[in-house]
């Protein structure tokens, strides 16, 4: 990843805050932790963050209120809400006050990393629409793929991995690159990349696509258009 991503974590539980900060540091994040909504607003005024994760249950100003104020003050940074409750009303309310995504505690660390990655990515992707590689057309805004003219159903991570391969225009994508770009963490075993390549190959073959994913021994994978 190019340069650390500055992230603001608003969490009053020290154990969780420390674990998330240390874990994300390995994944190229520079994490500032604040324990109250007020401190978070002050921190946002001082520095330029790329993404924020906000616990809903904060002392004093709660996460919803904080998120609302962040939006009111005109900040556009993506906000991920963290909560121990996954009642639908909470989720809807979180999205209503301007949060971009929602994660329920207890969460597995890789899940958090992947959500954050998707959020920072989503903002980078804005403005681009289609990506073409061989007989594949990736509709970036809708997250859909067409192979040889027919739609293919991919899961979100399958789509992101295919997008990564397509965006390299035939150059090799290493497993570490894939972990960074798709899952946003190296706290996952590398075999998951191989497994996802297998899923993608099967999907492309079933769709009758002539575009293939080639294994480059010792290096990674690359997309080969006919």
């Amino acid at each position: 990843m190019a340069g650390p991503v500055r992230m603001l974590l608003v969490e009053d539980d020290e154990a969780i805050a420390a674990a998330v900060r240390d874990g994300l540091r390995d994944d190229g994040y520079d994490v500032d932790v604040e324990t109250t909504g007020l401190d978070a607003l002050i921190a946002l005024g001082r520095a330029d963050y790329s993404v924020a994760a906000v616990d809903v249950m904060l002392p004093g100003m709660d996460g919803f209120e904080l998120c609302r104020r962040i939006r009111e003050s005109g900040h556009r940074l993506p906000v991920l809400m963290l909560t121990a409750r996954d009642a639908v009303e909470d989720r809807v309310r979180g999205l209503d006050v301007g949060a971009d995504d929602y994660l329920t505690k207890p969460f597995a660390f890789p899940e958090l990393a992947a959500r954050l990655r998707a959020l920072t990515r989503r903002h980078e992707v804005l403005g681009r629409t289609d990506l073409v590689a061989g007989d594949l057309v990736l509709r970036l805004d809708a997250g859909r793929v067409e192979a040889a003219g027919a739609p293919v159903s991919l899961s979100p991570r399958e789509f992101q991995l295919l997008r990564l391969l397509a965006s390299r225009g035939g150059d090799v994508v290493s497993r570490d690159d894939a972990l960074d770009e798709v899952w946003g963490t190296r706290h996952i075993e590398q075999q998951i990349v191989d497994q996802y390549i297998a899923y993608l190959r099967r999907k492309l073959r079933d769709a009758g696509s002539a575009t293939a994913i080639e294994t480059v021994r010792g290096q990674g994978y690359r997309l080969v258009a006919p």
């Binding site: 890789p110 159903s153 899961s155 899952w183 996952i188 075993e189 998951i192 497994q195 297998a198 899923y199």
Partner: peptide, 20 residues
């Protein structure tokens, strides 16, 4: 995607099919 990276699915292939 979530289950595929969880420890319980280690070594298990999970194929998915959904309508486009």
């Amino acid at each position: 995607d979530d289950v595929r990276i969880s420890p319980v699915a280690r070594g298990v292939a999970i194929e998915q099919e959904s309508p486009a």
